[in-house]
Design a protein around this nucleic acid. Sequence first.
DNA 1: TCTGAAATCATACGATG
DNA 2: CATCGTATGATTTCAGA
Lengths: 151, 151
Amino acid sequence: MDTIDRKIIALLTEDSRRSLADIGGSVGMSVSAVNERIRRMTASGAIRRFTVDIDPLALGLGVLAFVWVELAGDADEQAFRDWVATVPAITECHHVTGGWSYLTKVRVGTLADLEAFLGSIKARGYLARSETVIVLSTVSETAVAATLDHA
Amino acid sequence: MDTIDRKIIALLTEDSRRSLADIGGSVGMSVSAVNERIRRMTASGAIRRFTVDIDPLALGLGVLAFVWVELAGDADEQAFRDWVATVPAITECHHVTGGWSYLTKVRVGTLADLEAFLGSIKARGYLARSETVIVLSTVSETAVAATLDHA
DNA sequence: TCTGAAATCATACGATG
DNA sequence: CATCGTATGATTTCAGA
């Protein structure tokens, strides 16, 4: 993972449909060298996958919220984690420091959907308490490799 | 945006390097029809871009934190938003309901970097107060279109 | 890592329902 | 108007050095 790899990642992050020739021109390398580097980064897991960035609104997911969760004392933590992975509305779930156990990021279509979602967590008995913060607007939401200097 | 469009999005989210022929086989359509649909969704903004999903660790970004921000009473809110967009460490920034003004998601290499980052916010005079929550582990972090049923 | 050939693919176009 | 089949130019892939 050298400077050239990082530059390739930055270029692919911008547009992963760029041709190998195009990328090669930007980093001063041949098509096959670039191809080999991408293959290696994909194999090592540095590049997790080639994907598309979708506008949530296009999928009818106009409501974004963060839900803080404190698990009930008798809750099965592993069962909670397994369940989280199966719920489409939960796009992120992090185990965090501070007064709460988990922070989840939730995307749903309407506030009614959000209410239903919160109800389903409660119904499963995972919750000791929770707090929901609704996003009014998003200032920025960028990929991890937006730039090359991250000092 | 019908069922077939959503299926195409789901397939591209999994692997955007799939060939049009492959996708066409999955949705029962010709190469040209699939191509036209992808072109249309890209033009309309439903597909924002083709990109790669990068492992933050591969870029040396091993520390993830959420920072709650309450802007100072005399802070220039637009200046804050503009500044946020220029800081590589800030991967997300949302205007939220509740006791805080903004929730930011921050990725840095080390806790020292995190400390430096917090210092730079303070130095700019934006803050009335802030609270930092550090992520211990991430249970899930999926794309928005992971499935087709989001009811 | 490069060059060059071979295979695969995306794209454009006219036709069809 | 969306979809299709075909032709063509571009692109990825793979061999050998």
